[in-house]
Design a binder for these strands. Structure first.
Length: 197
DNA sequence: AGCGAGATGAGCT
DNA sequence: GCTCATCTCGCTG
């Protein structure tokens, strides 16, 4: 059930990002499972990717975990109020990561709703990278956490049929020049928990 | 239903 | 000082 380290340790991060669709992201809370199926991801390709925090070999305290072993959580803070959850991939020294942008709630939906009282409709609960972090209780204390541990982990769940896989350019990275055009965003077609159609 | 702006702080140049 | 891997609200049409 649990995704093994090998899954994350491969070199082709775009492929891993695609394969994460349909997997279950689980963050237990006071003995209960709170989880959702991953429906939208984005790949960030290390030092050569202008959109990545690690572009140009910029290694800082913030992105340090991107440089470490695959299968760990990279959680960072943006826009003064939101966290973003990523999985580190590739080999140590190659700072690749995959941003999770949307999940479909599966377990512990009431807990998620308590955490996001402003979400009126179910589809507003986890349809975006900041939203899903609030719903799952993910913050920077989980940065560097092992995805093969007990605090945050990913399990096999569903296989998305090839016909439902979609890809396109990444969101919110217009500053990245040509790299902004790369088709490194992956999502499940017609799933309401994708942040944008 | 679609757009513009404000919130709010860490990390860079 | 300014830029963000965003979200929500309030205004317009």
């Amino acid at each position: 059930m649990l995704i093994p380290r090998k899954f994350y340790a491969r070199q082709d991060t775009a492929k891993i990002a695609r394969e994460l669709l349909g997997k279950l992201l689980v963050v237990p809370s006071s003995g209960r499972r709170v989880s959702g199926m991953i429906v939208e991801t984005e790949a960030y390709l290390g030092e050569i990717d202008r959109a990545a925090h690690s572009y140009g070999g910029r290694r800082t305290k913030r992105n340090e975990v991107m440089y470490g072993e695959a299968g760990f959580a990279y959680v960072f803070f943006v826009y003064g109020m939101y966290n973003q959850f990523n999985c580190v991939t590739g080999r140590p020294g190659t700072p690749h990561a995959i941003l999770i942008r949307g999940i479909e709630p599966v377990e512990g939906i009431e807990i998620m709703q308590e955490r996001r009282p402003k979400a009126k409709k179910l589809k507003d609960l986890t349809s975006g990278p900041g939203k899903l972090c609030i719903a799952l209780g993910i913050d920077r204390t989980l940065n560097g956490e092992d995805l093969l541990g007990t605090k945050v982990f990913i399990e096999r769940y569903k296989t998305i049929p090839a016909g439902e896989l979609a890809s396109g350019k990444r969101i919110g990275i217009d500053y990245a020049g040509e790299d902004a055009e790369l088709p490194l965003r992956f999502w499940v077609a017609n799933n309401p928990f994708v942040s944008r159609a």
